[in-house]
Design a protein around this nucleic acid. Structure first.
Lengths: 185, 185
DNA sequence: CTTAAAATTCTACGCTGTAGAATAATGGTT
DNA sequence: AACCATTATTCTACAGCGTAGAATTTTAAG
């Protein structure tokens, strides 16, 4: 039952090399399984590799988490401009929430990241969902800010209190926002 | 320049005993100074005491953080029912935001705590600010949910991105909510 | 054939929360 | 005054964390 002693140094071309994608996807599944950000040692353990090997591909842990985030962020729902905008908005929001719930730790990385691209992803899709409304520029920005930060607040609450909250808890507040937007239209 | 070796065992009555309040307030000022949750060793260091002494007063770190949270939560603005409700609402929200910004780490503790009291504190004050509107029960709940989670989202964003955001960033979104509430009144 | 680069492991450091044991002073009982 | 349980404290230690730096081995280029 020995744990397969590993040989030092660069491995031969036979035994598959590590890749950053492999590392990211391993980290992703650990994150999903354990409901929290895995340690570097956990990731490397799951890969059957020394912890420091990770650092050949990522300069530090947060670089890995950022890559993870980038790889996931496009999964959120892309609303269509033609449909019922309220339905599309709800779909978008619930999909975002589901993503943030499935991968706890994503939220913090998303907001902390130096590169804003991923954080803006949801804002962009939100803009899409709101275009049918033809809001004034100011109202549009306010609505975007309100919904984005509201969603992050909900996501954080669900993350801190996993048992007590379901993703349907946004229905009421979102409905209120919709009413507001219909009036401001 | 020796670091004053400490004697083991219970100290004599002369040299003032530790208290949980002293520990909490030390933790508080460290949190404020360093902009993050202090380690137990940092707190004990500032108190000139061994780290494990803390555990005589708190069963674990999160118990200390919860006590800290409880001690701070009443600092948020108490809105008056008579005044202009929009002004009162804004004051309340900005005071909450300022608190969460001054003590980063408070937010997570607040949301994670098993005892909901402190987390409801803001909701209660919010209810106060909204009473002049005489909203229907459903609308009231929705508004409360919306504002609470929005505020937490903003607080988180400011915490993750301290340089980029000021507490005035809530003006627009809050204004939108106010418009919505006036209509639903 | 040599050699630089690349990919990996190993060792180690300082940090974290905290369990468990040792120690010393206190306050109450006899 | 002697004893003793209780209380308040320190010490030692452990497992885990991120990661710096060096050693090691293989690959690929000249």
């Amino acid at each position: 039952m020995s744990v397969k002693e590993r040989k030092r140094g660069r491995p031969g071309r036979s035994q598959g090399q590590l890749t950053s994608d492999l590392i990211v996807s391993t980290a992703r599944s650990l994150m999903q399984k354990n409901g929290k950000v895995p340690s570097i040692r956990q990731v490397s353990g799951a890969l059957g590799v020394d912890a420091m090997a990770i650092y050949h591909y990522f300069s530090n842990k947060s670089a890995l988490l950022e890559a993870l985030t980038v790889s996931l962020i496009d999964d959120i729902y892309e609303p269509t401009v033609d449909g019922n905008w309220q339905v599309e908005l709800e779909r978008l929001c619930k999909s975002y929430l589901a993503l943030l719930q499935t991968y706890p730790g994503l939220l913090e990385t998303l907001l902390t990241m130096d590169t804003f691209g991923p954080a803006q992803r949801f804002s962009e899709r939100l803009a899409l969902a709101l275009t049918p409304l033809r809001l004034s520029e100011a109202t549009f920005t306010d609505a975007q800010d309100l919904i984005v930060d509201y969603m992050h607040g909900v996501a954080l609450a669900m993350q801190c209190n996993p048992d007590n909250l379901s993703s349907d808890c946004i229905d009421g507040a979102l409905g209120l926002v919709c009413k507001a937007l219909e009036v401001s239209r």
